[in-house]
Amino acid sequence: MEIPYTIKARPDTGLINAKLGIWLFLSSEVMLFGALFSSYILLRVGAVEWPHHVLDVPLATVNTAVLITSSITMVMSWASLMTKDFRKYKMYMGTTILLGFVFLTIKYFEYSHHIEVGEIPSKSTFFAIYFTMTGLHMLHVIGGMIVNSYFWGPGSKMWKTEPERFTNRVEVAGLYWHFVDLVWIFLFPVLYLL
């Protein structure tokens, strides 16, 4: 069965189906992370004391820069397809995936250190919400990397047969990736700086 409206916009919505679909999905994601941010507020206002600067701020600052950089390489990969430069697309998409790995590696070192010194979720409310929120975010990063890797590798064959459809796919994958970046933009000050 052929999937409708993958290239041409659907007349009633004015959008290709995938784009409307990803935005509806991202709306549900806003509610998922919103529930956790809401829990964070509730836990924090109810806490007698709340730790300040107990996490590794310099490392997390580097990780923030890494994710922001991956966002621009992601949007550049889409822009490269729009200018029909497939070679550049591969380079930018490859860099995005690589930056995802860098983010995960830094997070691995952070988590390892916490576990080593006994700062595990059961230690305090702060570490419980820290591991829950960053853990869920990390799963999103991994999910995005799997999708991006598919579009960098086997999925990129579509460029030869249906370039516009492939460009739309990359745009939609990009919307998800930018959302993951956006969540981190709020997680970073909330957990590391305040």
């Binding site: 919505t13 004015g14 959008l15 784009k19 409307l20 935005w23 509806l24 709306s27 806003v30 509610m31 919103g34 529930a35 941010f37 809401s38 507020i41 966002s71 621009i72 992601m74 949007v75 990009g174 919307l175 930018h178 959302f179 970046d181 956006l182």
Partner: peptide
């Protein structure tokens, strides 16, 4: 990056609804 500055009405409508529920949640 997500091109919301020049998107279609349908997306704005979905996001407005999301914003309302998000604020309730917060």
């Amino acid at each position: 990056f997500m091109h919301l500055i020049s998107e279609k009405k349908m997306i704005y409508a979905a996001l407005c609804l999301t914003t309302v529920f998000f604020l309730v949640l917060i």
